[in-house]
Simulated assay, not measured.
Amino acid sequence: MILGIDIGGTSIAIGKLKNNQLIERKLTPTPFDKNLKDSLSLFIEMITPFICSKTKGIGIGVPSVVDTNQGIVYNVANIPSWEEVHLKDILEDKFNIPVKLNNDANCFVSGLKSFGEAKDYDNIIGITLGTGVGAGVIINGELYEGINTSAGEIGEMPYLDSIFEHYCASMFFTKKKTSGKEAFNLAQQGDKNALKLWEEFGFHLGKLEAQ
């Protein structure tokens, strides 16, 4: 069995896979307000119940730049205390099983290529939208990472008075004093202001995709 973990900006998803099938899943809030020691302790507590004698490895997608060779994550989104964490070493020492790390968007596009709608294509860009915005890139069937998995950090590109991430992720809705979920629910009910908000969001996202 393999453990797959997605460290999101607001929640951490932990899934147990057997024969490439998801057999168990849990969502837990991201410990964004904890210091380094406490947040790592909480993270290990989240993982521990999923570990058993049949667990062969752990794969983790992280919303940050990642040194995949050394297993170091830098400046993780929404966990301010994770400025430089040797996560691979910490978890391998704790659980004594192999750990692989990569940027979350790279994990997303790799999953699309291996198991999803993109498995028949060799050149792919997969965009992730959430707390932030990023991209995973596959060229000629191979994941293109750049330095420390930074090739897909499209949210950091300059745009208008700031960067794309402020217009193509959750911060866009926060600045409008709402949330993506609330705006979605209102739009589903035909609310004109919410529909206009999504139209504006789509405009900015289109500008990003056109880069």
Score class of each variant (00 low, 15 high):
1 M>I: 08
2 I>Q: 15
4 G>I: 10
4 G>N: 05
4 G>W: 11
5 I>E: 08
6 D>I: 10
7 I>W: 04
10 T>V: 02
10 T>L: 04
11 S>R: 13
12 I>H: 06
12 I>W: 10
13 A>K: 15
14 I>S: 04
15 G>N: 04
15 G>D: 01
16 K>Q: 10
18 K>A: 07
21 Q>L: 09
26 K>D: 03
26 K>Q: 15
29 P>F: 15
29 P>V: 09
31 P>K: 10
31 P>E: 11
32 F>A: 14
34 K>L: 15
35 N>Q: 08
37 K>M: 03
40 L>N: 07
41 S>R: 12
44 I>E: 09
45 E>Y: 07
47 I>P: 10
48 T>N: 13
49 P>S: 12
53 S>F: 01
56 K>A: 14
61 G>D: 06
62 V>Q: 06
62 V>G: 11
64 S>L: 06
67 D>T: 13
69 N>Y: 07
69 N>Q: 15
70 Q>F: 07
70 Q>H: 15
72 I>D: 14
75 N>M: 13
75 N>C: 07
76 V>N: 09
77 A>T: 14
79 I>P: 06
80 P>R: 04
80 P>L: 01
81 S>Y: 05
82 W>K: 09
82 W>R: 09
89 D>Q: 15
89 D>T: 11
90 I>C: 02
90 I>W: 08
92 E>W: 03
94 K>C: 00
94 K>M: 02
98 P>C: 14
99 V>Y: 07
104 D>C: 09
106 N>P: 06
108 F>W: 12
114 S>P: 00
115 F>K: 08
116 G>W: 01
120 D>Q: 13
121 Y>N: 14
122 D>Y: 11
123 N>T: 14
123 N>D: 14
127 I>C: 07
127 I>E: 00
128 T>C: 04
128 T>M: 10
128 T>R: 00
128 T>E: 00
130 G>E: 08
131 T>P: 02
132 G>T: 00
132 G>N: 05
132 G>M: 06
132 G>I: 01
135 A>G: 05
135 A>V: 03
135 A>L: 00
137 V>W: 08
138 I>H: 02
138 I>L: 08
141 G>M: 11
141 G>I: 00
142 E>R: 10
145 E>W: 00
147 I>E: 13
148 N>I: 08
149 T>I: 06
150 S>H: 10
153 E>H: 15
155 G>T: 06
155 G>M: 04
157 M>V: 10
158 P>C: 09
162 S>A: 09
163 I>F: 11
165 E>Y: 06
166 H>R: 06
170 S>H: 04
170 S>R: 02
171 M>V: 08
171 M>Y: 02
174 T>S: 12
176 K>N: 13
177 K>R: 13
177 K>M: 09
177 K>Q: 14
179 S>E: 05
179 S>C: 05
180 G>Q: 06
182 E>C: 03
184 F>I: 07
185 N>L: 15
185 N>Y: 12
187 A>C: 13
187 A>D: 05
188 Q>S: 12
188 Q>A: 06
189 Q>T: 00
191 D>L: 04
193 N>S: 14
195 L>V: 00
197 L>V: 00
197 L>F: 00
197 L>W: 05
198 W>E: 05
198 W>H: 09
200 E>P: 02
201 F>S: 03
202 G>N: 15
203 F>Q: 14
203 F>D: 10
204 H>R: 09
204 H>G: 03
204 H>F: 01
206 G>K: 06
206 G>E: 09
206 G>S: 11
208 L>D: 01
209 E>D: 02
209 E>M: 13
211 Q>K: 12
211 Q>F: 14
211 Q>C: 07
